[in-house]
Write a protein that binds this DNA or RNA. Structure first.
Length: 537
DNA sequence: GCCGTTTTCGGCCCGACTGTTTTCAGTCG
């Protein structure tokens, strides 16, 4: 038995257990046994206490962890894995497990494909689809072959980019030291291909760092301004800024501004000093995309962007009443800790029967008596595939805020999908369209809708569009946020929090709103409670 | 596999949707 090379984290344990669940699924095991491992994995993942130090008795006190899995967790803590998992891994290659990432392929399908057709890899699967070997199996037909073929194409195209939490994890693992994160991360991009950091040293050696997907640039304190500016980009922004400098007789370099006439170097300790020297307003990193910001900065006319401190509440939260893991009390407490005036409870219409919704409203009133942060009664109501909404109008009329979202029928053609959303906006009770494009970063592309039509109709009907702040969605994308804002459409930033920790994702939503040039006035939840309620009524 | 208990085995979240079926299984959220 080999000891693990580093301390085993809860994430490591959770990953092992989740992998066990997947392998059992492919092996065709009992679904409840599979579910037990999935549940255990989720449970460990959300635990704040490090699980590696617990003994078996303490472990079994965690809901969903019994004697068996407790023993396996102890084994993971000691050796990095566990025997039963190793045994299963020997019978099922890892390349088979990866196929679960193909949309339309679930555990049951994969079990059949693996056992009956011996499919072990993406290439195998594609060959089988192309050779029409799937439709020979019972339960499979031409349509499923097409679905899986689309899934394969999408899987192959998936970009190799980090989500922001993945990037944060890489940054957290870096050794301490004076440095600033630059690049697209600093500009607030929704995903990051490569991390760029500027390390500040008194006597920088001439060297290039670049381990572990991190690009390190060294500078000294006196030159930090241009170094950071150049490392932050974007390329288009820097090119345009270079032109501004050139018109004044300078060349922009990471070391400083070089006088064209005599090669003398002008150094700057901060970005602000560079912009000041060039006679410009400081351009916030989120705007540095060459979308007109340089011209405005020269005229000192940049918009006053919305900031996290402008936020008065969260407009999108789930609880245990649907698929969330937090109670109403948990939400009220989380809102209080964040200094919010309100949080809107927006459980899924598909999971809360009308009678339960009435009960929830009573419960919300009860919770509100004990907390300063006011819970509002809302819903995330499905826009069903036939275009109808998940609740009748008389129920929607009773709610403080209604978010309407598409959760199904993603593959409908663009016109049908677009019209579903337009129709939803026409309902007088619908206040917000949730995650308007439905994308899941790195997993699923945006569904095909005509966003220009959606934005125009949002303006016409006075419906807000959501900026979904979940780092796995970050939906709407910045250029559409800006288009919406320019048409007078309000943006509703919601975290879509399913558990307490996710309220902190608001910062991602704010970053995205800033990339869309939003001022506080463009964002619905910068309003006070009374102003918000006035807007919705 | 876990849990709760009618203490040793039966139930485990569920609704919408799709495709392949003629009543259901699998996927997805």
């Amino acid at each position: 038995m080999k000891a693990p090379e580093r301390e085993v984290t809860n994430r490591d344990v959770a990953e092992r257990l989740t992998l066990m669940a997947r392998l059992l699924g492919i092996a065709g095991e009992d679904q409840y046994r599979i579910a037990a491992y999935e549940r255990a994995g989720r449970q460990i993942d959300r635990l704040s206490l490090p699980v590696a130090g617990l003994d078996e008795e303490e472990l079994t006190r965690i809901p969903g962890i019994g004697e068996r899995i407790a023993g396996q967790i102890r084994e993971i803590a000691a050796t990095g894995t566990f025997g039963e998992l190793r045994d299963l891994q020997e019978t099922i290659p890892g390349s088979v497990v990866d196929l679960l990432g193909v949309a339309g392929v679930g555990p049951k399908t994969l079990h059949t494909l693996y056992k009956k057709l011996g499919i072990q890899s993406l290439d195998d699967l594609e060959q089988a689809v192309k050779g029409h070997r799937l439709r020979a199996l019972s339960g499979f037909g031409a349509k499923r072959e097409e679905t899986i073929q689309r899934g394969i194409e999408q899987f192959r195209r998936r970009p190799n980019r980090m989500t922001r939490p993945q990037a944060d994890a890489v940054l957290a693992a870096l050794p301490d030291g004076p440095y600033t994160v630059a690049g697209s991360y600093r500009r607030g991009s929704s995903t990051v291909a490569r991390l760029t950091i500027v390390a500040i040293e008194d006597r920088p050696e001439t060297r290039e760092g670049g381990d572990d997907g991190v690009d390190v640039r060294f500078t000294e304190p006196g030159r930090c301004g241009t170094a950071l500016l150049c490392a932050t980009g974007s390329a288009a922004f820097l090119e345009r800024l270079g032109e501004v400098a050139a018109r004044q007789g300078y060349r922009l370099t990471p070391e400083g501004l070089v006088e064209a006439a005599n090669g003398r170097l002008q150094e700057f300790a901060s970005e602000e000093e560079v912009f000041l020297f060039l006679g410009m307003e400081t351009v916030p990193p989120e705007l540095r995309e060459d979308r007109g910001e340089i011209e405005l900065a020269l005229r000192h006319a940049l918009p006053g962007l919305v900031g996290i401190s402008d936020v008065q509440g969260d407009l999108h939260a789930h609880t245990t009443w649907s698929d969330g893991r937090q109670s109403l009390e948990d939400v009220a407490e989380a809102g209080e800790r964040r200094g919010y005036e309100y949080v809107v409870i927006t459980d899924h219409s598909s999971r809360v029967r009308p009678e339960a919704l009435t009960k929830q409203q009573a419960e919300i009133e009860r919770v509100n008596r004990h907390h300063d942060c006011r819970l509002l009664s809302g819903s995330e109501v499905d826009i069903r595939s036939d275009g109808t909404l998940g609740y009748e109008n008389r129920i929607l009329a009773d709610l403080d805020l209604v978010i309407a979202s598409v959760h199904s029928g993603f593959s409908q053609d663009q016109d049908v999908l677009t019209r579903r959303i337009l129709t939803a906006m026409e309902n007088e009770h619908v206040d917000v369209i949730g995650h308007p494009t439905g994308r899941l970063l790195g997993r699923r592309p945006a569904y095909g809708i005509d966003l220009e039509r959606v934005i125009a109709h949002a303006a016409a009907t006075g419906t807000a569009l959501e900026i979904n702040a979940s780092p796995h969605r970050l939906d709407l994308e910045d250029i559409y946020i800006r288009q919406a804002k320019m048409k007078g459409v309000k943006l509703a930033i919601g975290t879509d929090a399913h558990r307490i920790g996710e309220f902190a994702n608001m910062r991602y939503g704010i970053t995205l709103a800033r990339r869309g040039w939003c001022t506080p006035d463009d964002v619905l939840n910068t309003r006070s409670l009374s102003a918000l309620l006035e807007w919705t009524s």
